[in-house]
Design a protein around this nucleic acid. Sequence first.
DNA 1: AACGAACTTTGACCTAGATCAAACGGGACT
DNA 2: AGTCCCGTTTGATCTAGGTCAAAGTTCGTT
Lengths: 246, 246
Amino acid sequence: MNAPTIAHINCADCPIRHRAVCARCEADELEALDTIKYYRTYEAGQPIIWSGDVMNFVGSVVSGIATLTQTMEDGRTQMVGLLLPSDFVGRPGRDGAAYNVVATTDLVMCCFRKKPFEDLMAKTPHIAHRLLEMTLDELDAAREWMLVLGRKTAREKIASLLSIIARRDASLTPDGAVQSMTFDLPLTREAMADYLGLTLETVSRQVSALKKDGVISLEGKRRVTVPDMGRLMEEAGDDSDGGFLL
Amino acid sequence: MNAPTIAHINCADCPIRHRAVCARCEADELEALDTIKYYRTYEAGQPIIWSGDVMNFVGSVVSGIATLTQTMEDGRTQMVGLLLPSDFVGRPGRDGAAYNVVATTDLVMCCFRKKPFEDLMAKTPHIAHRLLEMTLDELDAAREWMLVLGRKTAREKIASLLSIIARRDASLTPDGAVQSMTFDLPLTREAMADYLGLTLETVSRQVSALKKDGVISLEGKRRVTVPDMGRLMEEAGDDSDGGFLL
DNA sequence: AACGAACTTTGACCTAGATCAAACGGGACT
DNA sequence: AGTCCCGTTTGATCTAGGTCAAAGTTCGTT
């Protein structure tokens, strides 16, 4: 049989180009994975897990978008993660979910029952290594977001969010360095506000301001085009090391 | 020979009670670790790594406290992690440091040159698993902190920080459930501000307010006693599920 | 004991973003 | 075509926390 050229820890055959590729995985490991995985779909708006629930599976997003949120008793909520295709959900070695996971668009997940996955992980070190790598990436992302939440102005926050979404979007259809780009905002103003620690009114105002200043332009409420990614990243307060490489 | 009863991924013999224990590690793995580790000390205020530097070691804190910070070009800084004894530093599989790491007190680190550590990790799956577990814990902590930064008021932020420090402190000398406790603040008001996304003046004011309201009392500027941990956690806005278990 | 430097507190004022409120799409129903 | 609903925009006002400034502590040094 053919050895696969692209091998992800979760799916050998998911219909997306996975962001992360594990070239080390062997064909028989993938086959082992194939025998225990299953797909599951969710509708837009449908909750996937509530914080505190037992979570008897792990998995990753195949298509669609989900959010990870934390909520205080009085209703204040903070989004702590945005799950785009190829992102991993769940925590091997722990039963309770720590966050609410909600599908914000129609969503397909590729799942594994937790126990078999953990068994497989114990047997195949590459999977654990890959998972460690992904978790470290997520940790970096979370820490980058702490800077956004703690120290950036509302305008910088919006620009940071747009820049992150654009970057993730671009990585799915890469063209090397990109100067301008267009994409769909997968989030309502309220969801953006929850991600950024702002109110939806402030989000709306700042989006309007960025539009007025020509940093972005809108087609409808959701379709955004960024004429100059470098400019956007300046607005985000990131050290723009010139080009926008992937 | 005696199998060790407490085995941490980094040190078999570090003079601290490690927060996290890996009972699965075998004696020979520990011996292998012993042969490649070394200790290093830093003075209070001394930088350990600058963001962007090549980092040719990984390690963990044995004693003392270090901070992980990110800085924008204009000087705004956000602390993204507080390294207490037993915390791990560094990223197997990546060369560049992503943050500034600074010793805030005199510090002892237990280090491994990165390459040998990675080799060892490849050979001993338990180490990778343990590291994954620790990284997932850190990710949870980072996400909890996102809620603090994004949605909590200044007073809640201070209470959250005190509660976290108290919790970590207590876990080093555990007594089961704790009602009241006393500890030293390891951070200046400025460092607290950088952690919380506030200014040092606001930190000072809110600490004074918590003191005036009897939530805490101070002995000097740094020694804090919390008469009622439950009260403190209420102030922090955490769902205080009654007792303060560890 | 006096001096300095670093850290902390407190006060007065200001502003970015929150809050409250009203109006404005735009698409999915009848 | 009308209307209902949900998301969005925009305006007017308020306030938590930032900014600027000046004292007060603590502690190590001469």
